[in-house]
Structures are given as C-alpha cells and as structure tokens.
C-alpha cells in the first residue's frame, strides 16, 4: 500500500482516516456475529449513562436503557470508532437498539 508522508503522519496521530488508507486489494469480510455481539455490548456497557446490568443483545436504547436521542447519536459514534466504519446519517437514524447495531455491523463488509 502506498501512503504519502502526510497520511502516515495522520495515522500516527490516530486520526480517523479509514477511507484514506484503505487499499484496493483489501476485500471486505464479514465479522462473526457472536464477536460483533460481544463488542457491541461492551461498547454500550462502557457508555457513561448506561447501567451495565441492563444491557442485553436486544435492549432498546431509549425505552430500555433510558438514553435520549442525543445519547443515541453518541452511542452510534462509539460503534463507528470501535468497528472503524463510517455509518451514514440515514443508517445511523435506524440504529435504535443493540440488536439493530449488531445486525448492521455484522452485515457491514468493512467492519473490523
């Protein structure tokens, strides 16, 4: 993979630039659903306002976990960081529960 000095520098700084550094040869592979479930749940459990004991693979963010719409946006952003993907706004609005997130990320070819 060929990188310019600039993008190396950004990488070293941990800047989100997934689109910039991904090579053409890299084929998307789907993650194991069980693995995705574990990681999604740990992300949600680590969220400040969530009671970890209430988190299940089907918890609804607003109804079950007591989060508001701004928190939901933050949780989706946390998924983006964990799985190194960009979730477009239209998809992000549809992720309202842990099961939505698991389904979306397990079917995302670039999630890692």
């Amino acid at each position: 993979m060929r990188l310019t000095a600039g993008s190396n520098c950004l990488q070293a700084l941990g800047v989100q630039s997934a689109g910039l550094v991904r090579g053409f040869a890299e084929q998307g592979t789907f993650l194991d659903k069980k693995d995705v479930t574990d990681r999604v749940l740990s992300v949600v459990k680590n969220f400040d306002k969530v009671d970890p004991s209430k988190v299940t693979p089907t918890s609804h963010f607003q109804n079950d976990l007591g989060l508001d719409s701004l928190d939901t946006v933050e949780v989706v952003m946390a998924f983006e960081e964990e799985f190194a993907v960009e979730i477009p706004d239209s998809e992000a609005d549809r992720i309202l529960s842990t099961s939505d997130a698991i389904d979306y990320l397990a079917s995302h070819p670039m999630a890692k």
Partner: peptide, 20 residues
C-alpha cells in the same frame, strides 16, 4: 426539526474527531 438537530450534532462530533 429534531432530525436536523441530530444531524448537526452528529456532524459536529464527527468534525471534532478530525482534529489531530
């Protein structure tokens, strides 16, 4: 609308992530 506010919130947080 609420959706527009959420979109701007998301956009601002995303922009924030880009600062080295």
């Amino acid at each position: 609308s609420a959706a527009e506010v959420k979109a701007l919130y998301r956009a601002l947080l995303k922009e924030g992530r880009k600062f080295p």
